[in-house]
Design a protein around this nucleic acid. Structure first.
Length: 245
DNA sequence: TTTGGCCCGTAATCTCACAC
DNA sequence: GTGTGAGATTACGGGCCAAA
């Protein structure tokens, strides 16, 4: 899952944060004031003694006005020419995983920044449109393929449609839409891709740039922003829990 | 300014008893 | 034997505070 250009070890969240802070010339105190995260916590994160939960990462990216994906990738080398031959191998064990009461999602290939497609494997547990809430819409297009189970796709201008294993759907994302586990199906697993002409699609999907940008119906964290933060089973980009010293 | 010890809260996991 | 719920245990994020 490493870019062909990148032969060194995958950077940790701490290294990425430290680099971000160094580039901006901030002290821990300044970064703490900007992010709302205590100095000692930032210090521990930078030294890989602690990792941040999803809600803290979201808070960090929002307050520092950076893309969520910035926290998952190395900074560009200074003066580096635009990348035209990027590659990323998606591995489930390296995916950025977010689990909520309704959904499990695994964001793949997260080390690639400013990509125009967001691949995500999703376990869908929402069973009714009432449970899901209002149909969502955003710029771009998306494609969803059912890997397991059966899903019910609600769209703004069409009748709901059932998709069984092996079936898929492609829609314009600016049309209101929602994905549910079909009746009689406890949960379904899909693989989907959201695309957009905009480079900060990831941030857009995560709802980082204002309330006027609706989140994707693909169950992204932003879709469940109303869920209690502590109810989320969070995992750091590194995807590991560290041993206590 | 930064680090690390300590403590608290919470979620996940484990164990066990109980019902079917 | 299997499923389920309660309680105990474990692991870890988060924050306070003192020391380097």
């Amino acid at each position: 899952m490493v870019d062909a250009r990148r032969t060194k070890k995958q950077p940790t969240l701490g290294q990425l944060l430290k680099g971000l802070r160094a580039r901006n010339g901030w002290t821990l105190k300044e970064m703490s004031e900007r992010s709302g995260i205590p100095v000692s916590t930032l210090s521990k994160v930078e030294n890989d003694r602690l990792t941040l939960t999803y809600d803290k990462l979201l808070q960090l990216s929002q307050r520092l006005r950076i893309r969520m994906s910035e926290l998952f990738a190395e900074p560009d080398e200074a003066g580096e020419a635009p990348v035209t031959a990027r590659r990323s191998i998606g591995q489930l064990e390296h995916a950025v995983r977010v689990t909520t009461p309704n959904y499990d999602y695994h964001y793949l290939c997260t080390e690639l920044r400013r990509k125009r497609m967001i691949p995500v494997i999703t376990k869908i547990r929402a069973k009714s449109i009432d449970e899901f809430g209002e149909l969502v819409r955003h710029s771009g297009e998306e494609y969803v393929y059912v890997l397991a189970g059966e899903i019910e796709v609600h769209t703004e201008f069409y009748d709901p449609v059932l998709l069984d294993e092996g079936q898929s759907i492609y829609i314009d994302s600016n049309m209101g839409h929602a994905y549910l586990a079909a009746p009689g199906c406890d949960e379904a697993i899909t693989i989907g891709v959201c695309s957009s002409a905009e480079e900060d699609l990831m941030s857009s999907l995560l709802g980082l740039h204002g309330s006027d940008q609706a989140s994707s119906a693909l169950p992204t964290p932003a879709n469940e922003a109303n869920a209690p933060a502590k109810a989320l089973k969070r995992r750091s980009p590194e995807g590991s829990r560290r041993e206590r010293a």
